[in-house]
Design a protein around this nucleic acid. Structure first.
Lengths: 162, 162
DNA sequence: CATTAAGTTCAGCAACTATTGAACTAAATG
DNA sequence: CATTTAGTTCAATAGTTGCTGAACTTAATG
């Protein structure tokens, strides 16, 4: 494995860690991204990342559960293989936005507990409305993406013209 | 402070913790939401939450830095007061979406490191395009919100009609 | 300029989380 | 059915993070 790729794997570890997964999960994900194999075995991952079986076991579970990675099995082979999931691109973001629904609900609750109307009440109404509204808008964006993605990808990089 | 409010404060702690802040920051935020004062002093917060000065000091810094809370000072009074920030509602979400830009960039880098075109390459292109595209779309949503928020808030709760 | 008040900094502790490595289970193979 | 292989579970450990309390800084006041 060359240095560029190893660096990339570490970087991926840090990025996914920031996004709320573990560093090891990020490394595995990074490796699956750039490994030039159609699917990779448990042991291949373990050896490449020099990690323990326990860690790989826990980490692949986490990645499969979060739908970033999927398992592949083959007839006549008792190993499990892993690869980047081909799940719809919007899924992950959508998942994250659910947290804002929770936030929006918290704000509504707070509004009900207040005993007077004031600037904060106005703010609470505005922001809780915003987060529930934006959830709906976002669903429409995802639909738009699904309908037009072929074209969007083709024009990728083009920004300054209609 | 009645039980409902105290429960709310704890809930706020848990929600903001999920969103990546500390539990104590969530409590302070929750208290500022429902406290029925225009602004609250450092010591008022400390006493209400039964926390240490150090903790309140660190926590208010975090909240002010993240723009959820702002400081208020008064002439002839050397205390600092805090209140919920009146910042534009979109700010916080926008901040979060920046993380996906980082993710998108990671995917592009991964794409360059691959030595062949395969299904994963296609996936990388698709998903990295998606995340950079969705960032632009999201900016438009924010504009739409700013332009129409008065009306959206007025119609809040109405869903099944045009 | 000594005193008081407001807030910050930081060492130390407690709680939590990720990772390892060893023991274990489950399933396939000879 | 003994052996091998694949993967899981779990106790121990290392690392991280949040919180406290005490010492410290800064600035206002008598």
């Amino acid at each position: 494995m060359n240095t560029n790729k190893l660096n990339f794997i570490e970087e991926s570890g840090l990025v996914l860690e920031k996004l709320g997964m573990t560093r090891m999960a990020g490394r595995v994900f990074g490796y699956l991204m750039i490994c030039d194999k159609d699917q990779v075995s448990f042991d291949d991952i373990r050896e490449t990342l020099e990690a323990s079986k326990g860690s790989i076991s826990a980490t692949t579970k986490q990645l499969v559960y979060s739908k970033l990675v999927e398992q592949v099995s083959m007839p006549g082979d008792r190993k499990t293989y892993f690869r980047i999931s081909r799940k719809k691109a919007g899924g992950m973001l959508k998942e994250r936005l659910k947290l804002f629904t929770v936030f929006s609900e918290l704000l509504s609750k707070g509004m009900m507990l207040k005993h007077r109307d004031d600037e904060v009440s106005d703010w609470l109404l505005e922001v809780s409305t915003f987060y529930s509204w934006v959830g709906d808008e976002f669903d429409q964006i995802i639909d738009k993406w699904e309908a037009n993605k072929a074209e969007i990808i083709k024009n990728q990089g083009v920004r300054n013209e209609e």
